[in-house]
C-alpha cells in the first residue's frame, strides 16, 4: 500500500454507521411494521420472544438484500445525485466488503429465522432476498420500465413471512396482505417520480417517467389505484378483517382514488405551476394509506382478543 492510499483510507474509513446505512434502515421500517402485523394477525399465537427474534431476522434479511443491492448498483449510485453519498460511492466501504457483508447477513438471517421459527419461514426469507437481489436488482431493474412493479413484490413479502412464522404456511389472508403492499407500491413510487426530478436517464435505468413520459405515468397511477381499491376493501371480508378495517379501507381508498383521478387529470404545465402540490400530497397520503390499513388489521386483532371481533 502506498503512503497516499494509506492516508486516503484513513480519511475515508468506514464507521459503524456506514455499515448500518448499507442495510437501508428506512426501507427496513416498512418491513418491520408489515411483518409484525402479519405475525400478530395470524391465528396461531407466537411466543413474544420468538416473535421479536423473527421480526429482527426478517428485518436483517431485508437489510442484507439492501446491502447486496448497493453492491450491484454501485455503478448507478455513483452517477445519481441522490445516491452519491451512499457508503460505496462515498468510498467508505468497498464493493467486495458490501458483497461479503450482504451474503453473510443473508445466510445468518435465513438460518436463524428457520431455527427460531420454522423451515418454511427461513426458505421464504431466502426466496425474498433472491427475488430482490437477482430478479429485481440484477435482471429487471435495468431492463423494463415496470421495474418498480416487480420490485414491489419483494417489499410485499414481509407480511407473508410474518404470517408464515406463526402458521408455517400461506393462506388467503397472507396473500391479501401481499397484494395490498404489492399494488400500493406503483402509485406510491410513481407519484414520487413525478415530483422528484431524478437522473435515472443518465444512469440508464428505464423509469416509466423517462421511457413512456409523465402523462403515461399519471395514467398508470390511476390504473393501479383502481385495481388496488377493491382488493384493499375485499381484505376486510377475510378472517383478519372486520367492520373497523372495512370502514378504514373504504375511506382511505375513496380518498386514494380521488387523488389518483386528480393526478391523472393534470398536465405538466399545471403541475409545474403549483410545484407538484397534488403529486406531493398524494405521495404523503400513500404513506398514511398503507399505515392505516395495517394499523386497522392490528386493531381488529386487538378487538377480537377482548371479545369484540365480529368475524
Amino acid at each position: 500500500m502506498s503512503d497516499i492510499s494509506y492516508i486516503q483510507q484513513q480519511d475515508n474509513e468506514a464507521r459503524f454507521g456506514d455499515y448500518i446505512a448499507l442495510l437501508k434502515p428506512r426501507v427496513m421500517s416498512l418491513v418491520v411494521f408489515t411483518a409484525f402485523v402479519g405475525l400478530v394477525v395470524a391465528p396461531n399465537p407466537v411466543h413474544p420472544f420468538v416473535g421479536f427474534v423473527a421480526i429482527l431476522f426478517i428485518a436483517l434479511g431485508g437489510g442484507a438484500s439492501g446491502a447486496l443491492n448497493m453492491w450491484y448498483d454501485a455503478d448507478i449510485d455513483r452517477i445519481m445525485r441522490r445516491t452519491r453519498s451512499r457508503p460505496i460511492p462515498a468510498g467508505k466501504v468497498t464493493e467486495r466488503e458490501a458483497l461479503g457483508f450482504g451474503l453473510a447477513l443473508s445466510g445468518i438471517s435465513c438460518v436463524m429465522l428457520a431455527l427460531a421459527t420454522n423451515i418454511f419461514s427461513g426458505l421464504f426469507l431466502a426466496f425474498t432476498i433472491f427475488f430482490y437481489v437477482v430478479i429485481y436488482t440484477m435482471w429487471l431493474k435495468r431492463a423494463t420500465p415496470q421495474n418498480i412493479v416487480i420490485g414491489g413484490a419483494a417489499g410485499a413479502f414481509p407480511p407473508m413471512i410474518g404470517w408464515a412464522v406463526a402458521t408455517g404456511g400461506v393462506s388467503i389472508e397472507s396473500i391479501a396482505m401481499f397484494l395490498l403492499v404489492f399494488l400500493w407500491t406503483p402509485p406510491h413510487f410513481w407519484s414520487l417520480a413525478l415530483f422528484m426530478k431524478s437522473d435515472y436517464h443518465e444512469a440508464k435505468v428505464p423509469m416509466l417517467t423517462v421511457t413512456h413520459g409523465r402523462e403515461h405515468t399519471r395514467k398508470n397511477i390511476l390504473v393501479y389505484t383502481l385495481i388496488l381499491a377493491p382488493l384493499a376493501v375485499g381484505t376486510g371480508f377475510t378472517s383478519i378483517g372486520g367492520p373497523l378495517y372495512l370502514a378504514t379501507a373504504i375511506v382511505m381508498n375513496a380518498l386514494f382514488i380521488k387523488g389518483a383521478i386528480e393526478i391523472h387529470g393534470r398536465t405538466e404545465v399545471q403541475a409545474e405551476a403549483d410545484k407538484y402540490a397534488v403529486e406531493k400530497r398524494f405521495f404523503y397520503f400513500s404513506l398514511v394509506y398503507l399505515f392505516a390499513h395495517f394499523a386497522a388489521l392490528l386493531a381488529e386483532e386487538g378487538l377480537s382478543h377482548i371479545g369484540l371481533g365480529v368475524w
Binding site: 484513513q10 474509513e13 468506514a14 464507521r15 459503524f16 454507521g17 455499515y19
Partner: peptide, 10 residues
C-alpha cells in the same frame, strides 16, 4: 482510536 465506534458497535 479511529476504529473505536466500529469495534464497540460490533
Amino acid at each position: 482510536i479511529r476504529r473505536f465506534s466500529r469495534n464497540a458497535g460490533l
